[in-house]
Design a protein around this nucleic acid. Structure first.
Ligand SMILES: [Mn+2]
Ligand SMILES: [Mn+2]
Ligand SMILES: [Zn+2]
Ligand SMILES: [Zn+2]
Lengths: 137, 137
DNA sequence: ATCATAATGATAATCATTATCATCACCATT
DNA sequence: AATGGTGATGATAATGATTATCATTATGAT
């Protein structure tokens, strides 16, 4: 479906800033961008936008379930288009590259752990920090 | 060993602020405190200290391996005395209670995932968010 | 085309945290 | 025990990320 109809579906007006932010998230090589990243890319593309609008729009997209926020220990949130399938992350502490993975047995064990503790799971965040193959030694 | 000798072992002078911060981390019921939490508790106990000093000292303790920092998605870091054994966390999204767990099979799977991706693991952060047994319905 | 309403952007404000720096306290040495 | 060099402290200002405000503007239903 088009961004236009996506927006309509979640009750957000179709505006140029929203279209542009979504377009950047979809087309930029980076799958995990900070608000600042999006803003700078916007300027690159000669688009006018306020940084505050980028933050506001990203929050709305998150609320609406269109994007996902992740907090790697970098000080600022990163956003990515929300896909139908869940995944967790491997983060390189040198070059910053982020790899995604999904491990069914880890997911299953989390359920068990939560049940054991009497917790009703709403979500989880698993980030493995280390050095990617290009950044060792 | 005493805090005094712990400090000496990592090259930190034994000062009143450091002793007090460590004491609060050891004796407060809360196992996961923000810098602000520590600061307020300090004031409760009628101790003079600057908030900046709390931040500084907590960072030094972290650097020295005496305390551990965790970033639950709350906006501010929480600190706890570093224990010899690693653990991960279950965080209640309503009352904020934090439970700790250790699951060997999850730990082992993480190693496999990292190996598969060519990553050399340095650490990881797993937080399960949900509702504790007291906060459901 | 009109118009109520939602959205934008410039700006100020907030929040957590860190940097500065003059003063002070710890502790090895005398 | 007194001294002195160096590390530590606390008041304050600064920073970085993010959010709030609000007058102006754009959207979309009519
Ligand atoms: Mn991802
Ligand atoms: Mn813990
Ligand atoms: Zn790397
Ligand atoms: Zn609870």
């Amino acid at each position: 479906m088009s961004d236009r109809s996506q927006f309509r579906a979640v009750g957000l007006k179709t505006t140029l800033p929203r279209l542009k932010v979504m377009e950047i998230l979809e087309n930029s090589g980076e799958r995990h961008m900070t608000a600042e990243d999006v803003y700078k890319e916007m300027l690159n593309l000669k688009e006018e936008i306020g940084l505050g609008t980028v933050y506001r729009v990203l929050n709305q997209f998150e609320q609406a379930g269109l994007v996902e926020r992740n907090n790697f220990e970098s000080g600022s949130s990163v956003f990515e288009i929300k896909s139908d399938s869940h995944h967790d992350h491997l983060v390189c502490m040198k070059c910053g590259v982020v790899e995604e993975f999904f491990d069914p047995s880890i997911e299953a064990q989390q359920e068990k752990v939560a049940k054991m503790a009497g917790f009703q799971i709403a979500g989880h965040s698993l980030s493995i920090y280390g050095f990617c193959s290009d950044c060792q030694e």
